Every structure is written in structure tokens, then in C-alpha cells.
Simulated assay, not measured.
Amino acid sequence: MKEITPNEVELIVNEGTSANIIDVRETDEVAQGKIPGAVNIPLGLVEFRMNELDKSKEYIMVCRSGGRSGRACQFLESQGFNVTNMTGGMLAWEGETE
């Protein structure tokens, strides 16, 4: 599984580069703040909503600490998606939130 640090994700977001960030936390967790531009797809719904994702794009998966996003990465990789797990999750995120 590919991994990326929160600092590397923050650089991508700050550059304004098109980052496809999927936050797999529950809706109430995301309401407390998420990475700007991140799309919320709770882990339990990833299998049912993967049709919304494009296999030609790269996705960065995020959760609270890195565990759930890691599981989402494993599942999506097995389905042919290009995904990277943000290590440490939002607990390690020091950038802006929305």
C-alpha cells in the first residue's frame, strides 16, 4: 500500500494541484473539520459508492488515525483503483480545515 504524510498532502493542497482526497470518517467526525476539498465517503459506504470514483485518477484516503483509510485503500486497490493512504490521519494533520 502506498503511503503519504500529512505534510506532503498539505503541500499538494496548498499548491492548488487537483488532489482527489476521500475522507472515510463518519459524517459527524467530518463535521468537526476536514481537509479543504475532501469528499466524505464513510468507510461503510465505500463499496457502494466506488462507482463515483474514476480508476484513471489517483486518490488520497484519509481518516482519523490512518486505520480505516488503510482498509479503504486495500479494498479499492483490489478493485483496480490507484489509492494512497495518508499516515497518521487527521490526528497528524496540521493544515487548514473546513
Rank of each mutant, 00 (worst) to 15 (best):
V83A: 15
V9C: 06
G44C: 09
G33C: 05
N40L: 01
C63K: 12
A72E: 03
E96Y: 03
K34G: 12
E10L: 13
L43T: 03
R49K: 14
I4F: 07
G66C: 05
L43C: 03
S18T: 11
G67Y: 14
A72K: 07
A92R: 03
L53R: 05
V30S: 00
F81P: 06
M50I: 07
I41C: 04
N82K: 13
A92Y: 04
L91A: 13
R68Y: 08
G88W: 02
E29Y: 07
A38K: 02
N51Q: 09
K34S: 09
M86V: 05
E94R: 15
L43D: 08
I35L: 06
A92M: 10
E58S: 15
I35W: 01
M61P: 04
E29G: 00
E8A: 11
E10M: 00
W93L: 08
N85E: 01
T84M: 10
G66Y: 05
K2I: 00
I21G: 08
G80Q: 04
S69M: 04
S69I: 03
V9W: 00
L45N: 15
I12Q: 12
D28A: 07
K57E: 11
G67R: 14
Y59D: 12
N40I: 01
D28V: 15
G80H: 06
D54Q: 15
K2E: 12
D54Y: 13
E94G: 05
Q79D: 03
N51A: 14
W93K: 05
S56V: 12
E47V: 10
V62H: 05
I12C: 07
E47P: 14
S69A: 06
M90V: 09
V13S: 11
D23A: 02
T27E: 13
R49E: 11
E98G: 10
K57F: 05
Y59C: 04
M50Q: 14
W93D: 07
V30D: 01
G37I: 04
V39N: 04
V46Y: 09
G16Q: 06
V62W: 06
Q32R: 07
A31K: 14
I4G: 01
V62F: 11
M86P: 09
A38M: 04
L76W: 04
G70L: 09
G95D: 11
F75Y: 14
D28C: 06
L76A: 09
E10G: 10
M90S: 13
A31V: 02
N14D: 12
G89R: 08
T5F: 09
E58H: 15
V62E: 05
I35G: 00
N51P: 13
S56F: 07
R64D: 15
C63F: 07
V13A: 00
S69G: 05
V13L: 08
T97E: 06
N85C: 06
S56N: 15
